[in-house]
């Protein structure tokens, strides 16, 4: 069995606050960064699924990607933190930039790109062999960062508070993460991503596997993270997109053609004054 988290050596000295040198990179509050996708096309094998999509996701705001199934919005999201390339037959063209840096540039290490751009998946996927505590800071062993017990304690509390989970789990941090409810597991995954203080957080239908009250907690969490981190969320739920997002982008793939953005802009405008008939039909639930 692999020991994932080093056990504390000796008793922790009381008094002075923990030194956080090793984690300096993790703890400094990086400002949320804007994410810019330029001319993104994507293929699976020979099938083109996205055609020259460009979108600006403004810093600190929540951008919702909406559209019917199979329109390429999840693919687009996975391109934003280089998860797309994990699929062997996947290809893409275009650029994704944080500030002026292209995350696909040859000098950019894929692990660094993913550390700056966190991701939460549709199904909660905490590591079942790890406790809540270990799950929250699982990024440390995964990326080979050593930290003292005090630093970890600090990081765990910070991250769990950001995900509004701290009060519910602070008394059972060392129980397995798999024992939490689905909604709590999902917030644990948010905490896990936030522990890296990413500049951008991607969410792929984070609430679609959850019941309404858990969904609401997730939405509250998103609202609290707004401003601190740039959020890009894929959702099938129109009301959810309306409630939580500042910006919306409507993706559509007409029959046998790759997905494109039909219309994007401020959420209120997309819902109340769309310029394209298809957008109006979709946001009003007339298809999709």
């Amino acid at each position: 069995m692999v020991d994932l988290i080093a056990k504390p050596r000796g008793r922790r000295a009381a008094g002075p606050p923990p030194r956080l040198d090793a984690l300096a990179g993790y703890l400094e509050t990086k400002p949320a960064a804007a994410l810019q996708a330029d001319n993104i096309s994507a293929w699976f094998g020979d099938r083109k699924v996205l055609d020259r999509v460009s979108l600006t996701m403004p810093a600190g705001q929540v951008t919702a990607l909406i559209g019917p199934s199979g329109c390429g919005k999840s693919t687009f999201l996975r391109i934003l933190n280089r998860m797309h390339e994990l699929i062997p037959i996947a290809k893409l063209s275009g650029e994704v930039r944080i500030g002026n840096e292209d995350i696909y540039a040859p000098g950019m290490r894929v692990t660094d790109a993913r550390k700056r751009i966190g991701m939460v998946f549709q199904k909660p996927n905490p590591f079942p062999a790890m406790s809540i505590y270990e799950n929250t800071i699982s990024a440390l062993p995964l990326t080979g960062v050593k930290a003292s017990r005090a630093e970890k304690d600090f990081l765990v509390e910070e991250a769990l508070k950001k995900a509004s989970l701290w009060d519910e789990v602070k008394d059972r941090l060392h129980q397995p993460g798999g024992g939490l409810s689905g909604g709590q597991q999902q917030r644990l995954c948010i905490a896990r991503a936030m522990a890296l203080t990413p500049e951008i957080l991607l969410m792929d239908e984070p609430a679609s596997a959850l019941d309404p009250s858990s969904t609401r907690r997730i939405e509250d969490t998103i609202a609290e993270l707004r401003g601190e981190v740039t959020i890009v969320i894929v959702t099938h739920n129109m009301q959810q997109a309306h409630r939580i997002s500042d910006q919306c982008a409507f993706f559509l793939a007409s029959h046998n053609t790759p997905g494109v953005i039909v219309e994007h802009g401020a959420t209120e405008a997309i819902f109340n004054a769309p310029r394209d008939q298809r957008t109006e039909d979709y946001v009003n639930g007339r298809f999709g």
């Binding site: 993913r114 998946f121 990024a139 995964l142 896990r192 890296l196």
Partner: peptide, 14 residues
């Protein structure tokens, strides 16, 4: 599980 693998990679795992 693929979900756990992707979860790890998404955190910047080597």
């Amino acid at each position: 599980p693929a979900g756990e693998r992707e979860g790890a990679y998404a955190l910047g795992a080597t």
